[in-house]
């Protein structure tokens, strides 16, 4: 993840703990990447790892 938009994952016993950024778009992005993957595992779903919705976005514009 980009600097300033960190994610922290851990476990307490068998309980996953996911800490996402406070910035709402990044909070949702972090949950979609790791929270959804965790729920898929907990429910034994046949699902691929969630893809990053920002993967194909162009880099931010550079100053001339």
């Amino acid at each position: 993840m980009r600097s300033g938009r960190p994610l922290i994952m851990g476990k307490a016993g068998n309980t996953p703990i996911i800490c996402v950024a406070g910035h709402p778009p990044e909070a949702l992005r972090g949950f979609n990447l790791f929270g959804v993957a965790a729920i898929n595992k907990l429910t034994d779903r046949d699902a691929e790892l969630p893809a990053d919705s920002q993967n194909n976005q162009a880099p931010p514009p550079q100053k001339p």
Partner: peptide, 19 residues
């Protein structure tokens, strides 16, 4: 969080992860 863990399958915390 410790209390929540006893009755939860997963915990999500938003905020507080910046440097």
């Amino acid at each position: 969080v410790k209390t929540a863990i006893e009755s939860s399958d997963m915990i999500v915390i938003s905020g507080g992860t910046a440097v």
